[in-house]
Nucleic acid binder design. Structure first.
Length: 154
DNA sequence: GCCAACGTTGGC
DNA sequence: GCCAACGTTGGC
């Protein structure tokens, strides 16, 4: 039996990597995740899981598109690269600490601002909207997913 | 630029 | 294992 698809929200600062950049590149290595909880979410991602591409530190912040996981977690090479801002001196090739997945663009959407997300009762329990939440990768429930996609496309 | 909230580090 | 100090995230 096929495993069930999961849904995620992944934050990216558009000045670092935007939905426009994903459209240009079609696909990307989602590098630079340096938080254990977010890493564990990366590990549970499966090919064809769907992702809300969220612009953080943006004006305004919000969901900017939909992406799809196209390769499951493997070591993030930037952790070994002394010149990278994501370099981790405690990581080695034998014992990598950080993983990434590859995602490809599904579609760019209209921007759904954070303010609008907060205004929807259906989204009030979203992990990413919880007070104080800073995680760059959070799970999204099927109900939340369906609600948002309908608002984005409809 | 500010700062609340949270995560990590390291001394003990 | 505790916790103070420090660093980071990200909305505002």
């Amino acid at each position: 039996m096929a495993s069930k698809r999961s849904y995620w929200l992944m934050k990216s600062e558009p000045e670092v990597f935007s939905i426009q950049a994903l459209r240009r590149d079609r696909q990307t290595h989602w590098e630079g995740v340096r938080n254990y909880q977010a890493r564990n979410h990366l590990r549970s991602m499966r090919v064809d899981d769907l992702v809300l591409f969220y612009h953080s530190n943006a004006e305004p912040p919000g969901v900017a598109g939909v992406a799809r996981v196209c390769r499951e977690a493997y070591p993030d090479d930037s952790q070994f690269d002394r010149k990278s801002p994501y370099y981790d001196p405690k990581a080695t090739r034998q014992t990598p600490r950080w993983m990434l997945v590859d995602v490809k663009l599904d579609r760019k959407t209209r921007l759904m601002p954070l303010e609008e997300m907060r205004a929807h009762k259906a989204l009030e329990k979203m992990v990413t909207l919880r007070r104080g939440n800073r995680l760059s990768i959070t799970p999204v429930t099927p109900a939340e997913w369906n609600f948002i996609v309908k608002k984005l496309d409809g």
